[in-house]
């Protein structure tokens, strides 16, 4: 019955690409879902991909059991400051970060499992008025934070037990950085999107701010999700929560833009808009490889193939509760979709 109700609506001619409900997990002790993610967890010599769910006051780790069921392994209890988001650390095991705060991030904590002691721990990584945070490869964390006078863009290295001593600062742009993305295939390159709709590029090794490039006035408050360099161009996948609807592009949720970093000129490569007849604007979403997913204001979840610029699947709002979260697992073959009541559904894509 549940599987039937959650079967995604496939769009015309795209039946080979669909979402198949694999399993559901529900934390009976929590009523709200703040965020969901995946992490690698290794214990007793066995390593597997686990699901991490966050509600305002706690974060839980779930491991797969037989028959597509999930069992809760551990719950980290947090203090009085609410959890805002999970910050996954790519290519790590037994480590995940979380951001806590009220309207904006006030602190970042590391949640970890020590296989030596068979113990779950947490430690404080950073405090401040933090505007954006991203987990980077090699157990690093980049964040932007503001004081009254200036912005600080900092990289923190993490050990298996918490914050390492050796940190690094990146040259800040004048405007506030609201999101980061590693440049795939370029170990030392990082991009960010700013409050005045610019893309900034850093050299992570030297901390230099290499370039600032404007995205365009039609797409305010763009957020970068993914970046890669190819043939001398920097391709950036952006979401547009406040884009204006146009006849030619509809209501674009995601755009792929090619920048020439030498000249700061850009061209739009692909728009990913909702198919005609579907209402709703982008609320929040995630990008992995060429797959993008977004929760819409209508309560639906939409999936796009960014190479085709085409919506490939749509999860309609559930009668028992609209969708609130959509995240790819560490591979784009698995989608985690969270409902407002805290239920998380896993789909094979």
């Amino acid at each position: 019955d549940v599987a039937g109700r959650l079967t995604p609506v496939l769009l015309d001619g795209l039946r080979e690409e669909s979402l198949q409900l694999v399993s559901k997990l529900k934390d009976s002790s929590s009523s709200c879902a703040v965020d969901v993610s995946t992490m690698w967890w290794e214990a007793a010599g066995s390593r597997g991909l686990c699901v991490v769910t966050a509600c305002e006051s706690s974060v839980s780790l779930w491991k797969p059991l037989a028959s597509d069921r999930w069992g809760k392994v551990y719950t980290w209890q947090l203090g009085e400051i609410p959890v805002i988001q999970i910050v996954p650390l790519p290519d790590t095991c037994n480590l995940v970060c979380i951001a806590l705060g009220d309207l904006e991030i006030g602190e970042i904590r590391l949640l970890l499992y020590s296989s030596e002691n068979d113990a779950f721990k947490q430690s404080l990584v950073k405090t401040g008025n933090i505007k954006a945070v991203l987990g980077l490869k090699d157990r690093r964390l980049v964040s932007s934070s503001r004081t009254m006078q200036e912005q600080q863009v900092e990289i923190v290295s993490l050990s298996e037990t918490g914050r390492s001593k050796d940190g690094q600062t990146l040259m800040p742009p004048e405007e506030t950085v609201l999101a980061f993305a590693e440049v795939e295939g370029m170990r030392d390159a990082l991009v960010g999107t700013t409050a005045v709709n610019s893309i900034v590029v850093w050299n992570l090794k030297t901390g230099q701010l290499l370039k600032k490039m404007h995205v365009g006035y039609s797409y305010p408050a763009s957020i970068c999700h993914r970046a890669y360099s190819d043939s001398g161009l920097l391709f950036v996948v952006l979401s547009h929560p406040h884009a204006k609807e146009s006849e030619s592009c509809g209501n674009p949720a995601f755009r792929v833009i090619a920048f020439n970093p030498k000249t700061a000129r850009s061209v739009g490569v692909m728009f990913s808009s909702l198919p005609p007849g579907h209402a709703g604007r982008y609320l929040e979403g995630d990008v992995k490889d060429a797959s993008a997913v977004a929760v819409l204001t209508s309560g639906a979840v939409a999936v796009w193939d960014l190479l085709l610029g085409r919506c490939t699947a749509l999860l309609p709002p559930d009668p028992e509760g609209s969708w609130a979260l959509a995240r790819w697992a560490t591979t784009s073959a698995c989608l985690l979709a969270g409902q407002q009541d805290g239920t998380v559904c896993l789909y094979r894509y």
């Binding site: 040259m171 370029m186 030392d188 390159a189 590029v201 050299n203 030297t206 901390g207 230099q208 701010l209 290499l210 370039k211 360099s229 043939s231 001398g232 161009l233 920097l234 090619a258 020439n260 970093p261 030498k262 000249t263 000129r265 850009s266 061209v267 490569v269």
Partner: peptide
């Protein structure tokens, strides 16, 4: 994309910008 839209393209843009940017 063509060079007329984007200007001259360099495969080594990252190294070139790193050499030019203030440190």
């Amino acid at each position: 994309c063509s060079e007329s839209d984007l200007g001259p393209i360099s495969l080594n843009w990252f190294e070139e910008l790193s050499a030019e940017a203030p440190s």
